[in-house]
Design a protein around this nucleic acid. Structure first.
Lengths: 215, 215
DNA sequence: TCCCCTAGTAACCGTCAAGTTACTTGTTGG
DNA sequence: CCAACAAGTAACTTGACGGTTACTAGGGGA
């Protein structure tokens, strides 16, 4: 029975609705991102992904092989997306703090994926390790340059500083309960986010080597 | 058949070995701490806990009701233990950084439990919320006092600063993959830990308001 | 037109894990 | 010494979950 039989408007010819592999794949990936971010890999339920994507579970295995394969694809796409996110960052490493924080606020799914990854590291070595390391190294170069220009204390180790900057921006979102304990707000609260942005600027300012104590 | 029948030495009378509820409970708790810390609540397997504790699974239900109850008890005991841990901390908030970091290094199980908790928050409100908040408030008072004494920038919000200090000390242990990406070492590596301690002191020093640039 | 590959579906399977049942064995107080 | 309760055990139940089987249906090219 063709679908146009019962209702009013006929389905437009130029865009097939009954079958649409690309759309199906995207729906699976979106649902999987949500589920894995919420529940982690082990806790994520394939049936839930399938139901939320509005597709049959079998299709998921058709396109991605197995749960592991689906997860890999989700992570890969997120990383690519993030790389694009981060090109618009400010030049000066200390100015980056507020920017990173705001990006993280708008991508809590990534923060949670990172966290699940952290808890499961031990088993697998590290997905995309070399690439991520290289990208961080590039950032460390910018830190060293900033140190040479006297815009950051010279004695800081660049790696430790990079790690610290991730900590400053990511921690409150990764540990909402700690954010609540310390501030009485959850990290999703816009009020908290404004306060944190302000704090991060003050913090960066305090870190700059004292050339002159400007008014 | 009594146990003394076969082997050589008889079991000492004054300490019953065949039955020892206290020991059994402790063994269960220890195994549960390890398992929950490794795998989280959802991922932790009751059978594994029972096997590692060398007891029958039924006893676990006997003493703790269910998996949830066992988990609660594990968390509760850890919190009590930690409270004791943290009384020996230095007076000055900035000096605390290195101390907190070293405590965390020796209690990675707790860091992981915190992390699992963070990922599952949403469902439950927060275990021991009021108490933890109060304890943090006390610490914030010390921050404010330090600010009054001119040992810390006066414009920092105390809550944000407390959160930041947790971030600086906990993040590298909570995200070993990030530590590796930034430094090429894992946070369990003694070399990394020494480097981090050094960095934290430098960092604290750089944060202190410039009274005089001492040699 | 018809063939064949791909998209899509429903029902099923083996396994695993939380929790229970029904039991045996040790300990202790009267 | 023995009843009664606590400690301990093995085998089972029930439900969920990852993955598969065996099928139907659409649609593009020869």
């Amino acid at each position: 029975m063709p679908i146009k039989s019962a209702g009013g408007k006929a389905v437009p010819k130029f865009k097939p609705v009954r079958r649409d592999p690309a759309r199906t794949k995207l729906r699976i990936l979106a649902a999987a991102l949500e589920e894995f971010s919420r529940q982690g890999f082990a806790g994520g339920r394939v049936d839930v992904i399938a139901r939320r994507a509005g597709i049959n579970k079998r299709m998921l295995y058709h396109y991605f092989g197995d749960k592991q394969g689906l997860f890999r694809e989700v992570m890969h796409r997120k990383m690519v997306q993030r790389e694009a996110w981060l090109v618009g960052a400010p030049e000066d490493p200390l100015d980056i703090l507020a920017y990173w924080f705001q990006v993280a606020c708008n991508d809590t799914e990534w923060v949670r994926l990172l966290e699940w990854e952290a808890l499961q590291l031990a088993d697998a070595p590290l997905a995309n390790g070399a690439k991520r390391r290289a990208s961080c190294r590039r950032f460390m170069e910018r830190i060293r340059k900033s140190q040479r220009l006297g815009r950051m204390p010279k004695d800081f180790d660049a790696g430790q500083m990079a790690l610290t900057m991730m900590a400053l921006t990511t921690f409150p979102l990764a540990f909402p309960q700690m954010t609540w304990i310390a501030t009485g707000m959850l990290p999703t609260d816009p009020k908290f986010q404004r306060q944190r942005v302000k704090f991060l600027s003050q913090f960066a300012a305090a870190l700059r080597p004292a050339t002159q104590s400007a008014a």
